[in-house]
Nucleic acid binder design. Structure first.
Length: 780
DNA sequence: CGGAACCAGTTTTTT
DNA sequence: ACTGGTTCCG
């Protein structure tokens, strides 16, 4: 039998069975029975349903180690797929640790996309590409589509290219090539979606480029149309492992199914309760019907949780139990001690941020009998990124160190993308998209007009833009400053290209010089906006990153797929991130703010996807709660500034679903005096009344009566007050803390239509306003 | 070409 | 409220 790919892995033979027996398999003793079952069931299809914090990665990596150790597979016969580079890295590290050596010999361990790149480079010609195709990112993709939309004479205003990009992405996620898009989608994008999709694919082929979706789609196409190629890989990959199976989309699903058909040794690990990427094409259905796809599949449930306290686990289970379509798991833990999940309501988002800031500071000190926590141990998980601002503002004012996880990635930054475009044209001058990007950056007097001329020259002569530009210059189609600058740029590109091909050339130095000779560095040096220094810093970092690669080509090839910027920070900081970004992470202390209907669950999600959307939101709540190891705090605010609009909202319906016996209801600050301003007192009462009047809260009150929880007494008084307060008549002058003064126009039940002097017309819950006279006493 | 003025679109995100 | 994009004018 041949080894194939021989150079790809170290010369290490798997241990023989005897050697193994002699040595024992200590790693197996570390597993609980379920994990062990999942590890040892090497043959046939296995579905590992791994609840949050149940040692999924451990089981997965041990399984790989076991496959190797028992000699069932050679390192290069195992296909192990993840979604993110981070997960792939972790898998590699942990397998290496288990085996006590590096696993460079596992060429097929990586993300779906990186593995597809590898496959596609080998078989590019089967889909009309050259093996050195470029990978476009979203930005390039949109720019290209924009050109096509304009060329098709469609109003780009009404039909934005970005929308088309999403549409095409969705189609690709479902493995639909242009000819396979169902007729029902025909009306998409002004009835021209499919036509533009086809044009886009043509254009990509001409450019010898692919987008992210193509990586999978092309490989699936190759597998479907070239049996021999498929057969070769089916034979090769004796064992297939898939992480986060619940996140696979149709294309990935097909890809896996095709590859697994022969040996049927496929082990999918996932948790249907943590499927939170439906909106970008993930199909929970894939995991739900695994047993149908692979008859005789062994289903192993990992249900013992090693992460959270019993209360946190019970709260999370209580919430997720409300979902219908589940495979069903019951998490349990051996842990006995622990705090209940805390719940608290606030007047508005600002107060919520203030309170959480204080809680973080006191958790740092160690209070209420809990140990002190480092800031690194604490995280705030929000539903939508706009919620982060309130926390950032607050933490900046009190000087609490924080880090925002997610957000713009290093390689997505403007200056990095520009620099990369320079590198790209240097490596391949026929990279039109890259050339377009840098031709007038820095400004060279080559505006729209000049660029159009270049485009035309290129098209007329059937050559690349760079060549077209040369022709244009030769023909004297450009004059003056622009001509001179273009000539200089083209000269530069020629020089850089020559040097990029020269193996003796130090590529780091070259990169540095490209940026200088092109005037790009200078452009930022002369820029006096506050961001400029940071951008120069980033450019330096980019050049430094080059050191780890052999040459520019190598760098460009890798970078397209490595879009994560996990710069390891060592400082002690609180993390702020979205719930999505938090998947797979864990923190001793977790804050879950913004549990309000409309925000979480998100209104849009429910509008667009109905019950399905709601269930996905609920899974998000489950993910959030299960991130917490020791202390979880859910909070909500009665009022929130969203997109410049004050919205009042009710506590999330998920709050109703929290099992009361595992919840501790906290008293909001300011309830017993301590108000700085008299004027806000009435309003605060009103807000509190609203908070306490919500169905969720009331239920909690009644449930928590057995426990001597602080406070219902005063809260009940508030409710009475509120009722009294809501008796307005049309024409009343009223005051609202955020909207200011206004006049009641109409009344529908407890909702008032009010025309505010400053804020304009608003519908407001009666409890949120006070009679103008009362509040008017206080000067503002 | 650059700056000012105007206007629309604002969940979640990887590769 | 804020951003990013486009348009319009000097």
């Amino acid at each position: 039998m041949t080894w194939g790919e021989e150079s790809d892995f170290p010369d290490r033979m798997p241990l023989s069975q005897q050697a193994l027996a002699a040595r024992g398999v200590p790693y197996l003793d570390d597993l609980n029975p379920a994990q062990r079952e999942a590890v040892e069931a090497l043959d046939g299809p296995v579905l590992m349903l791994a609840g949050a914090g149940t040692g999924k990665t451990k089981a997965l990596t041990t399984r790989i180690a076991h496959l190797l150790n028992t000699g069932r597979a050679r390192p290069n016969e195992i296909l192990a797929v993840t979604f993110t580079n981070k997960a792939a890295r972790e898998m590699k590290e942990r397998v290496a640790r288990l085996l006590g050596q590096t696993v460079e010999g596992m060429p097929w361990m990586g993300t779906f996309h990186s593995i597809c790149v590898k496959l596609l480079r080998r078989h590019a010609e089967l889909v009309g590409l050259k093996t050195n195709f470029t990978i476009l990112d979203t930005d390039d993709q949109v720019r290209l589509l924009k050109q096509l939309v304009v060329a098709a004479d469609i109003d780009e205003k009404r039909w934005p290219a970005r929308q088309l990009a999403h549409l095409i992405d969705n189609w690709k996620n479902r493995a639909w090539t242009p000819d396979k898009v169902p007729a029902a989608e025909g009306s998409a994008f002004n009835h021209r979606g499919v036509e533009l999709y086809a044009a886009y694919q043509d254009r990509l082929k001409t450019l010898n480029a692919v987008d992210f979706g193509d990586l999978l789609l092309h490989v699936v196409t190759i597998f479907q149309t070239h049996e021999d190629v498929l057969a070769q890989y089916q034979r090769w990959f004796r064992f297939i492992l898939v992480d986060e199976y619940q996140d696979t989309n149709v294309a990935q699903y097909l890809w896996l199914r095709l590859l697994a058909q022969r040996h049927r040794n496929i082990c999918c690990v996932g948790d249907d309760d943590q499927s939170i990427y439906g909106w970008r094409g993930a199909e929970v259905g894939n995991i739900l019907r695994f047993e149908k796809d692979f008859p005789g599949a062994k289903v192993v449930r990992l249900e013992q949780n090693y992460r959270s306290t019993p209360h946190i686990l019970a709260a999370a289970s209580g919430v997720i139990a409300a979902n219908r379509d589940r495979l069903g798991k019951t998490l349990f833990t051996d842990a006995t001690e622990g705090e209940k999940v805390r719940l608290i309501g606030h007047w508005d988002g600002e107060e919520e941020a203030r309170w959480i800031g204080e809680e973080i500071e006191s958790a740092q000190q160690g209070t209420r009998g809990m140990r002190p926590f480092a800031l690194n141990d604490m995280a705030i998980l929000v539903r939508a990124s706009h919620q982060m601002r309130a926390f950032e503002d607050r933490f900046l004012t009190i000087g609490l160190p924080y880090r925002v996880i997610g957000g713009p990635r290093f390689y997505e930054r403007l200056e990095i993308r520009d620099a990369m475009a320079y590198f790209r044209v240097s490596v391949s001058p026929d990279d039109d998209l890259a050339f377009e990007r840098i031709v007038n950056t820095p400004k060279r007097g080559l505006g729209d007009k000049a660029q159009q001329k270049m485009q035309r020259a290129a098209r007329d002569n059937g050559v690349s833009l760079v060549e077209g530009a040369k022709i244009l210059l030769d023909e004297g189609g450009l004059t003056g400053k622009g001509a001179a600058e273009l000539k200089a740029l083209l000269g530069g590109i020629g020089r850089w290209h020559g040097r990029a091909l020269d193996a003796r050339q130090n590529h780091v130095e070259l990169a540095q010089q490209i940026l200088e000779e092109s005037g790009y560095t200078e452009m930022w040096q002369n820029d006096k906006t506050p961001e400029a220094p940071g951008r120069l810093e980033n450019l330096k970092e980019l050049v430094k990153a080059l050191e780890q690669f052999e040459n520019l080509q190598g760098f460009l090839e890798h970078v397209a797929l490595i879009m994560d910027n996990s710069s390891e920070e060592s400082e002690d900081k609180v993390s702020i991130m979205t719930l999505h970004a938090a998947k797979g992470l864990e923190f001793p202390v977790v804050f879950l703010p913004g549990w309000e209907d409309g925000l979480f669950p998100s209104q849009r999600s429910m509008d667009e996807s109905g019950v399905k959307g709601l269930e996905e939101e609920r899974r998000l709540a489950y993910v959030g709660l299960t991130r917490a190891e020791e202390l979880a705090t859910v909070s909500f605010a009665g009022n929130r500034l969203v997109f410049g609009q004050w919205n009042s909202s009710l506590p999330s319906r998920f709050i109703d679903e929290l099992p009361p016996e595992h919840i501790e209801v906290l008293t909001p600050p300011g309830l017993y005096g301590g108000q700085q301003q008299v004027e806000s007192d009435l309003v605060n009462r009103a807000s509190r009344a609203d908070v306490y009047n919500s169905p969720g809260w009331k239920r909690l009150q009644s449930r928590s009566q057995t426990r001597g929880m602080a406070q219902p007494r005063e809260a009940r008084d508030m409710v009475i007050d509120a009722t009294a307060l809501s008796s307005f008549v049309e024409g009343d002058r009223v005051f609202h803390q955020k909207f200011g003064y206004g006049e009641v126009i109409a009344i529908e039940g407890d909702k008032l239509d009010i025309s505010f002097d400053k804020a304009g017309f608003k519908k407001v819950v009666a409890r949120f306003v006070t009679a103008a006279e009362a509040a008017g006493d206080v000067p503002f």
